[in-house]
Design a protein around this nucleic acid. Structure first.
Lengths: 226, 226
DNA sequence: CGGTGACTTGACAGGATTCAACAGAAGTGG
DNA sequence: CCACTTCTGTTGAATCCTGTCAAGTCACCG
């Protein structure tokens, strides 16, 4: 696979010259993972971060009883595991492959070198971390202040936005991963989906969901009681 | 108040020359707030971020029903409201003064200028945002995967660490703010505190708390059922 | 002294997890 | 190609944590 092409496509390295990109590509190596495989575990020493070449990755925490909370779903051309590059030296969460996937590995020290030489790369990284903070702030808000139906409605509306705004959306992840992303369990998500369907808000056929009552869903997602 | 002195003391501007510090100080202005006063509200356009000179600030989200979730307690010499400098242009949360306090205001554009000229400032900011991400990751974990007693135990142990490790800790915030920080309500926190006391884990006298059974508290904070 | 805010306690209700059982789908291997 | 296991998803019943409502105490301040 062409490392330079992927680097070029990622937001993190946007605006850099071709020359820079090849220099960046030269410090990376490749690692592939099979579906379900652990990429790194919480508490492990971190000497590098990753960029997804193809496939998707989940970043998650695990409770003592084994329940998972997904923090991020990482898509193609997005980086993950970058926090310990700047703070702490261990991964603060786990990462595992949602599908067979390939990653580019950026060694910490070499990347820090690059950062110092390339101010616009630092700015890109600041933008990336800020976006992550925005995401987390929303996640905290939903976990603490909203109930499961509101979180689910938010996610469906988010999918709708991402798809460009039709009335049909398709779940991009299995429902057990979805439930872990919403901070719940598969049973509850299944029930809520059912309830929304009987209330006429949505139609459900497997992973394909039709949003019938957009306004109703927006009310749900804002946390209004029904 | 001497802006340069506060800037010097903050982690964000660590390692910069005196010359740089005076230049930085020159772009700031002062704003004071009374206890309880709103500093900024979620959704407001953000043209600047803040640094606490004295007093403390809470950064928080509010639900439609009015319940609060505290995201951060900002101490002296710490910055807040810095996310929209790099991503989005509106504050993602609210900020209010916990006590009468004074802040230094950093206009966005002038600060971005400085960042480009001073690579080590960018590195400091990357470290800061990463620490915030670590904090958020823990917060999400606790909200989603642990119950209130575990969160409270974690916080008490955190206070103990901060105080240097005795058996006596003093709550640094009122209990209603504490409950909003733990993602709960005053009633529940009061009850849990009571339960821990009757179980002999802690002693409670107003805001002064004695940790009697350190191991027991650590078990609690890890989420182990009792 | 009236009043506001911090804190506590009791009763109650309700959302959500847990446990258990099951149906399909998917992937494996002989 | 089919039997078998594994994973995904669903449904029902019971339990429990936790938030809500209501009332009341205590301390502090104008």
């Amino acid at each position: 696979v062409n490392a330079a092409a992927i680097i070029h496509r990622s937001m993190l390295f946007a605006g850099l010259s071709d020359e820079d990109v090849t220099r960046i590509a030269s410090i990376t190596s490749n690692r592939s993972f099979k579906r379900g495989q652990t990429i790194f575990a919480e508490g492990e020493m971190a000497s590098a971060f990753y960029l997804v070449v193809y496939g998707r990755v989940k970043v998650f925490k695990v409770s003592t009883e084994g329940r998972e909370q997904v923090l991020h779903i990482i898509d193609v051309s997005e980086p993950f595991g970058e926090v310990p590059v700047f703070s702490g030296d261990r991964f603060p969460a786990n990462a595992a492959a949602l599908e067979d996937c390939q990653t580019l590995v950026f060694p910490r020290s070499a990347f820090l070198e690059l950062l110092k030489q390339e101010p616009s790369l630092a700015m890109n990284m600041l933008g990336l971390l800020s976006k992550r903070l925005l995401r987390f702030a929303r996640l905290v808000e939903e976990l603490s202040l909203k109930e499961v139906p509101a979180r689910l409605a938010s996610y469906l509306l988010y999918l709708r936005d991402k798809a460009g705004g039709g009335s049909e959306v398709e779940l991009d992840i299995p429902k057990n991963v979805l439930s872990a992303l919403l901070g719940s369990v598969p049973e509850t998500v299944s029930r809520v989906l059912n309830r929304m369907a009987t209330e006429g808000l949505i139609g459900v056929e497997g992973r394909r969901i039709t949003i019938c009552d957009l306004k109703g869903m927006e009310d749900y997602s804002s946390g209004a009681k029904v």
